[in-house]
């Protein structure tokens, strides 16, 4: 499979703290890659550097390369805003815009950037909501506030919002950690479907989830990439002792 995103010797510093230490790996196209590891291991930091979210964190410094379709997204003259269009992100806690309706939330990526034609907007909203299997649940109350939805619905709405701007890569930062088991199951099914069209990278602290949804898994520990490879292999026959200790629950 093609590598959609590649890390080449990625280092992230926050002031003096060295959060990610020289990670190099590939994220295959149209598949799901999970990043696992105990909290504080730098997995979210890696994820957030893939769409340059650290640009706005004071004191954060990213070195090394992150290559998207053959080009380094940190090279000079590369606009982080354009990158974020191509690499969308779903966050830990569902974060719909509270002042907006369901409809406006889905179309937010367009509206916040300018105008969008009504007919096109309708189409985008419907297809995006269908994409995340939320259409039937909300089609009668598109104009009601997004905050009235349940947590799981809100998270699917956030995914729909991300899908609506037609990214190529979707980053997910522990997308189910604030949700109940049933909502989690729905999101996991959704991730399964999303990979047909997108490259999905998901950070999770839940190993079962990683085993269920991902094709490739990377294990980070104390800012270092310990091991990455085929999910089945990593969970059944890890190469590194640390990985084995972690997945068998000896620490973390």
């Amino acid at each position: 499979m093609n590598a959609k995103v590649q890390l080449e010797n990625l280092n992230v510093h926050f002031g003096k703290a060295h959060a990610v230490k020289g990670a190099s790996m590939e994220f295959p196209e149209n598949s799901v890659t999970a990043i696992i590891g105990p909290s504080g291991c730098g997995k979210s930091t890696v994820l957030r550097s893939i769409n340059r979210m650290h640009d706005l964190t004071p004191g954060a410094q990213v070195t090394g390369k992150i290559v998207l379709d053959g080009r380094d997204i940190y090279e000079k003259g590369c606009d982080p805003v354009a990158i974020r269009r191509r690499i969308g992100m779903v966050f830990q806690k569902p974060n719909p815009f509270p002042a907006m309706s369901i409809y406006d939330n889905v179309i937010a990526g367009y509206k916040l950037n300018g105008r969008v034609k009504r007919a096109e907007a309708d189409e985008i909203v419907e297809s995006s909501l269908r994409r995340v299997a939320l259409w039937d649940e909300v089609k009668d109350r598109l104009k009601s506030a997004a905050t009235n939805l349940s947590g799981g619905q809100q998270q699917r709405l956030c995914i729909a919002r991300t899908v609506a701007v037609k990214p190529e890569v979707i980053l997910m930062d522990e997308p189910c950690s604030a949700l109940d088991p049933i909502a989690t199951l729905k999101i996991e099914e959704l991730i399964e479907e999303l990979k047909e069209q997108y490259t999905v990278i998901i950070v999770t602290h839940n190993m079962q989830q990683a085993a269920r949804v991902s094709d490739t898994t990377a294990f980070f520990y104390l800012g270092e990439l310990v091991e990455y490879g085929d999910t089945k292999k990593l969970f059944t026959n890890p190469e590194q002792k640390q990985t084995e200790d972690y997945i068998t629950g000896r620490f973390g």
């Binding site: 379709d69 354009a82 269009r85 191509r86 367009y110 950037n113 300018g114 105008r115 969008v116 034609k117 096109e120 907007a121 189409e123 985008i124 037609k166």
Partner: peptide
């Protein structure tokens, strides 16, 4: 669907 489509690859 919007005027800045050309930015999308």
């Amino acid at each position: 669907g919007w005027d800045t489509t050309e930015e999308f690859v």
